[in-house]
Simulated scan of single mutants.
Amino acid sequence: MKKLSLIFAASLLASPLALAEVVVIGHPAGPDSISVNQVRDLYLNRSKALPDGQSAKPFELPEGNAARAEFHSKVTGRNDAQLKAFWSQQVFTGRGQPPEEASNAAAMKAQVSSMPGSIGYIDSSDVDSSIKVILTP
């Protein structure tokens, strides 16, 4: 019974983390919204522009990051292994390079807020006034 109580208590503590959600962020001067399909196209090298026509610069979190896994599960439908294979093929055939990586949420916000046309994703709990939420997938 004591083990069951500990497991229940641990699950209650972990549940706020499980409820966190990823959001797509953009530069404050960028578009106010973007569709899931448009984000997918940007992150899978199918498009190079934001909805307002501005040249896009997507940023990526590192492999193994929980927000990255959630983002790609919801938006591109690919896991880290599939993304690695996809980008290997893109690079090998000369079709493109993977998005530049931001080391963590703070670095992602700094890069997106300082470069017009940039887009990224972070956990919703990391949102602040330096960036604009443009999609909640």
Rank of each mutant, 00 (worst) to 15 (best):
K74S: 08
N104V: 08
S113V: 10
R46N: 14
A81P: 02
A14V: 11
N79P: 13
G117V: 01
F86T: 00
L50R: 07
A81E: 14
A10L: 15
L12E: 14
M1T: 14
P58Q: 11
A66W: 15
H27E: 00
A105G: 08
L13C: 14
L13N: 11
M1R: 11
F92G: 00
V133W: 07
G96R: 05
A9M: 12
T136C: 01
T136E: 12
K3T: 14
D52L: 13
V75H: 11
S73T: 09
R78W: 05
N79F: 01
L135M: 03
S124R: 09
L19E: 01
G77Q: 06
L4G: 07
Y121K: 00
D32R: 00
R78K: 13
R78G: 02
E21K: 14
V75A: 03
A110K: 01
A10H: 11
A66K: 11
E100D: 05
V91H: 02
S125V: 06
L61R: 06
Q89V: 04
K84F: 12
P62T: 02
E101I: 03
D123V: 01
A14R: 07
S35M: 10
A110T: 06
I7R: 10
I131V: 15
L19T: 10
S11N: 13
R78I: 01
V112H: 02
L135Q: 03
I25F: 15
K57A: 13
L6V: 14
F92A: 12
P116S: 13
I119E: 04
L50T: 07
V39S: 07
T93G: 03
P28F: 03
G94T: 06
L44F: 08
V22N: 00
A106H: 01
L12C: 14
A9C: 09
S73R: 13
L19F: 10
S35G: 14
D32F: 02
N65A: 09
D52T: 06
V127N: 08
A18W: 11
M1Y: 09
L12F: 15
V22T: 12
K84H: 01
R95L: 07
E63S: 08
L4A: 15
V36G: 01
P116T: 05
S33T: 13
S103H: 03
P99N: 05
D128L: 07
S103D: 05
S114R: 11
K109M: 05
Q82I: 07
G77M: 12
S113F: 06
P28K: 11
S114H: 09
L17V: 11
I34T: 06
M108N: 02
S73D: 11
K57F: 15
L61K: 08
Q38T: 13
L4H: 10
P137V: 03
S5E: 05
V36E: 13
